[in-house]
Amino acid sequence: MIYDGTAPADSDVLRTGGVPLAPAGFTWPMCGSSCGGPLQFFAHLPVEYGALSVFVCQNDPGACDSWDATSGANRVYLFPREGLQPVAVPEKGVTLLPATSAIRIHAVPFDPEEHEEHEEREEHDDLAPDAYDLARSGWKWEPEEGFGKQREVLGSLGGSPSYLEDDRLPTCASCAGTTEFAAHLEEGISRQTAMNLGGQLGYVFVCRACCRGAFLTD
């Protein structure tokens, strides 16, 4: 997922920031970890089976366990694409990002042997190549894009969770079943567009049967 400029705040497109879209009657989620305030809306991710809506607590960064999938300091919802409408934003609390970022999907062909001296390849030289890590590296090697473009990578859809230990894979809070990996989310490219994840990579999981998901950072 690549940064693609700005987007309307209420658009039904891949984006970070803006206002959440949800079915009628949806109530803005509140932090269940420590502060009790409203969560900040992070991303709207239309996928083939619906629309994922991601919220993370940012009222007092570090005070609430926003990195923990079970803390109550983050929330992931799966909505049907039909009938979505903008949600009323609470008047208090850190609820919205300052800017709305459009996202475009870009497939990156990448042969690690061609760039084995690249810094990220060297960093993980003792590990098996990771698909997302290689794709991020490959983005800056695209001939028409030049170099130094990795900050424009906002994440990926589908695949498998990059370098996440098996014991951290979340179960569904409703049915206790296994959740499905849905997306990586990067913080963003600037202070205006970025979510504060403590410099970490965010992971989005979903239980399609229960229409809810989980979020955590590495």
Rank of each mutant, 00 (worst) to 15 (best):
C211V: 04
F26E: 14
R136G: 10
S71Q: 07
F147S: 01
R121S: 14
P20A: 06
G17M: 08
V204K: 00
Y163R: 15
V87Q: 07
E119T: 09
C31N: 08
H118I: 05
P143T: 01
L185S: 09
G148H: 06
C207I: 13
E120F: 11
G62H: 01
S66H: 04
V153R: 02
S137F: 08
R151Y: 11
E113C: 00
G199E: 03
S33G: 15
Q192F: 06
Q192M: 07
G146R: 14
P86T: 03
V56Y: 00
P112K: 01
G158M: 02
P20T: 07
D68A: 13
L197T: 05
D125Q: 11
P170L: 06
A183H: 10
S174N: 13
L127Q: 12
C175T: 02
E145T: 02
T217K: 05
T100W: 00
L14Q: 10
P61L: 01
E119I: 06
G37P: 02
R208I: 08
V54H: 03
F26K: 09
V54W: 11
S160F: 11
H118L: 10
P61S: 00
V153S: 06
G25L: 12
G62L: 02
T16A: 06
E180S: 13
E116C: 09
V206K: 03
A99D: 13
G72M: 03
Q192C: 06
A24E: 15
Y49W: 13
A73M: 08
E180Q: 15
N196M: 07
K140Q: 15
A176G: 10
E119A: 15
T217M: 08
A63V: 01
L14M: 14
H184D: 00
Q85I: 10
G202F: 04
A69H: 02
G32F: 05
M30G: 12
V54E: 00
F147P: 03
T178W: 00
G5I: 08
V13I: 14
P20I: 10
V54Q: 04
W141M: 03
Q200D: 15
P20F: 06
Y3C: 10
A9L: 11
Y3D: 12
S174I: 13
S34V: 04
G177C: 12
C172W: 09
W67A: 14
W141I: 00
L14T: 07
A88D: 14
A73Q: 03
A63G: 05
